[in-house]
Amino acid sequence: MSDHKVTIIDGKAVAQTIRSKIAAEVCRLSETYIKVPGLAVMIVGQRKDSQSYVNMKRKACAEVGIKSIDLDLLENVSESELISKVHELNVNPDVHGILGQLPLPKHINEEKILTEISLGKDVDGFHPLNIGKLAMKGRDPCLFRPCCPETCYYILTRHGITIKGKNVVVVGRSNIVVLPVSLLLLKEDATVTMVHSRTKEPESIVRNADIIIAVVGQAAMIKGSWIKPGAVVIDVRTNAVDDPGKKSGYRLVGDVDFQEACKTAGCITPIPGGVGPMTVAMLLKNTLDGAKRVIEG
């Protein structure tokens, strides 16, 4: 096994390429129409992880010239107040994308809020109608495909990995990533299996996969022995594990045991620096596409 070579996908470099193209397009819109895309980023409460994601998204907007419209709301905001904020953004002509950072506080019905976001501004692709269109064969494509699933698809196509006829195992059960990525790859003629906490013998199912997409939120759950030689591994979820050697007291790892996986996988996304930066780039791309539909008609 010592001569095994694994391809480690540099998400930061790929994201930078996508962002350069977006920046050039934003510049063109600005020069031609004196208008730039606007993204409203809405956060409720003080969750540390949510705040860091939101800051990353706002910073990314600034870097490509997209106008970030910031809404920082208190944890105890009422559902009706939040809905009226969404309605204001829906009719604001400077806003081409609306992003509600999830999870929302317990007293707010997430689906209700997501349903209120205008379809043409649903850059996260979470609106039930967008997900529904993704699920239905032969229907009009949804306006926006969810960013993280779209990133997984982009990684596969960009690296020339055939999806058709392949065994794809998605580990996890989230609505935000697992369901849409499964639907997306099913559309591309993959055979998709979802493995979750109630699955019997998950190891044997994962070992049969040509492509593994891990979205569990459990540090290093997927061991090297679970991975078929040459399989493609896309590690999505970031987990913080204690590390007294680090200044912060923790380090970030994925759901896949990276060191072990590198011994058998054909290619793999690392954490950090894999899917994360590319997902933010996809969000910017969706915002740009939404703006172009409005500005260019």
Rank of each mutant, 00 (worst) to 15 (best):
L129N: 15
N130H: 09
A23G: 05
S182V: 03
V294C: 10
M282Q: 14
E31L: 08
M42A: 14
I222T: 09
Y153E: 15
L186M: 13
G120F: 02
I234H: 06
T151Y: 11
T191G: 08
D255I: 07
V294H: 09
I69V: 11
E79K: 12
R293L: 06
L89K: 07
G245V: 10
L39S: 08
G276R: 06
C147M: 08
H107N: 12
S20Q: 14
A231N: 10
L89W: 03
S174F: 06
V206I: 13
E201I: 01
C262G: 00
K137W: 02
G276V: 06
E111Y: 05
F258D: 01
L252G: 04
Y33T: 05
G249I: 06
V177M: 11
M136Y: 08
N109W: 01
G120C: 04
P103Q: 09
V123M: 04
T32R: 13
T269A: 05
I205A: 09
A214I: 04
V64I: 10
I176P: 03
V195W: 05
R207T: 01
N175C: 06
I66C: 07
R198Q: 13
P149Y: 04
N239Y: 03
I98V: 15
N175I: 05
V178M: 07
I22D: 00
G274V: 11
E260Y: 01
Q51R: 15
M1E: 11
V95L: 04
G125D: 10
